[in-house]
Design a protein around this nucleic acid. Structure first.
Lengths: 297, 297
DNA sequence: TCCAACGATTGATTATTTCAATCGAGCGAA
DNA sequence: TTCGCTCGATTGAAATAATCAATCGTTGGA
């Protein structure tokens, strides 16, 4: 039964019987039959049948919700029992939006001090992807904005407020300033994230509100790329303060706080809203609360 | 997997492999093997092995908690999908303590108006049994005291306050009074419920607090028995007002409010604390809220 | 000491699951 | 229209797992 529910979840992810089967480590007929068995036991069609996968029926969508829940609980049970025996061990899968990648280490490092047997997988993802992966139980936790997109069925732990800085060479325009305004930043050619990233959309919004028309000179979905360009002292960018600190500025590059308006966005940890959480996740949440307290001070 | 978890729950109920197997409709070896498979997949002993069933290991107890949750969710899923298709249908199992039996009809009757395809099983149980059955998912809802025993992981909907009355013949001692005190009632020989019932313990407590030493003339675990005796006009009893109303008094029998102190105990509906509830249960809770509002007025 | 109850074990039987191979419908390109 | 391709359903054989009747070994109580 539970494996059939996993088939259903895989099908929802992949929207393709063959790939879903592959993801589950079975052949396509096995997955097909599994879904059909689910349909039989529930006495209702779950997927809209056509020549190819179209989508789920309303009943299928509801079943999918239950499947996520039941499968999640089953995994949590397994994990908890193992933790009772051998202490915390396993793999924690975390997805973070690019601007927060540098601070993941502030979470994982103390975690590892306490629980040396836990391994990590850290993925860079857009804020949308973070939420869908969380929904599908493909990750255990996400780090993303808490105050923009609707979050869904998750528990959120605020970590810090993202403040923006203009990163530019000291001999470039505005390079000698103590603070700058968004209106001023709007005049500078920038390197920014690609538009699928929420950070880009936030910054564009701020620039536009200040009367600018953002046409970035260069865009990338990688903060490393952006930073590497800025470091040459020939490009400028807007980055969260936390990130600029971590990446390290040279003496020719300055990070200048952008004020008027001072834009704040809350970054936090999100985990599936399940009571009780898996032990690995519960420990991560505890760590996040400690980190939030440290950052507050 | 899920059927193995059901085996575990049955074993917890019956505390006996053979009977648990019978309850699950399988033979004892099947259940034994099922439990052992669970132990293998979790990599931990779940039941303490001896020549006979002793109990669960700590890991077994935790697994049992998860089993209740997962099995409950699975049933809820089945039920919800069926409700989506054919409307509310199925069987609602309710256990009620004896003093509330008469008012169950006030819940089931309007429920049936709305959902004619739902069938009912109503069991008379002690307040303790109500809670354990609820825990084991053997019933969908209970009706019991909300303010005495610890309730556990349930959602409670208060229905009404139980007020006590002396039920006695009009020509018996105290039979001509408008109100009586507990101290006076303590002087009268009574028919009461057996001591395993919470109502008996409550009334005994009140009588003792008023200086009495309750030695009931007759005890039974059935309110029908008590009432049948009272109806002969040769016995007296203490009953909640609601119950006495329903059972119907003759002109020779009076129900006299007992005051000083006026003892109030809250009666309510209790259902498993699961989010979301099964559709049948959710509808019952809605009905209970409506009933509570009606009774309030 | 013996007995009765309980749960584990065994071995045969049955049911289920799985997969490789194949089929057939539907869609797009020529 | 026809061809070719992709996708999901179907089929039948092989492997795997579940189940049961029968029996065994232990243990606690008469």
């Amino acid at each position: 039964m539970i494996d059939k529910l996993e088939y259903l979840m895989a099908l929802a992810r992949e929207r393709h019987f063959g790939r879903a089967a592959q993801a589950c480590g079975v052949t396509q007929p096995t997955l097909s039959t599994g879904i059909k068995q689910l349909e039989e036991t529930l006495g209702v069609l779950l997927v809209q049948r056509g020549s190819r996968f179209i989508g789920f029926t309303p009943e299928g969508e509801r079943t999918l919700d239950w499947a996520r829940r039941i499968v999640g609980d089953t995994r949590a049970m397994r994990e908890e029992i193992r933790a009772l025996q051998h202490g915390l061990a396993g793999r924690l899968r975390i997805a973070a939006i690019p601007t927060t990648l540098a601070m993941v280490a502030a979470l994982t490092t103390p975690y590892r001090e306490r629980h040396p047997d836990v391994r990590f997988t850290i993925l860079s993802r857009t804020s949308i992807e973070v939420l869908t992966h969380l929904e599908n139980l493909e990750i255990d936790a996400g780090i993303t904005y808490l105050d923009n997109e609707p979050l869904g069925r998750v528990t959120a732990i605020p970590l810090y407020q993202e403040r923006y800085q203009l990163i530019t060479a000291s001999d470039a325009p505005l390079g000698d300033r103590e603070t700058v305004t968004w209106a001023e930043v709007a005049q500078v050619p920038l390197c920014l994230l690609t538009p699928d990233m929420q950070n880009r959309r936030i910054i564009e919004g701020l620039l536009r509100a200040a009367g600018g028309d953002p046409q970035p000179m260069l865009e990338s979905n990688s903060m490393i790329v952006l930073f590497a360009h800025v470091r040459t002292a020939r490009w400028a960018s807007v980055m969260p303060a936390k990130l600029a600190e971590t990446l390290g500025l040279t003496d020719r590059i300055r990070a200048i706080p952008i004020v008027a308006p001072e834009a704040l966005h809350t970054i936090g940890l999100v985990v599936p809203a399940r009571e009780p959480m898996t032990p690995l996740t519960a420990a991560l949440v505890a760590e996040a609360r400690r980190l939030a307290k440290r950052l507050e001070a």
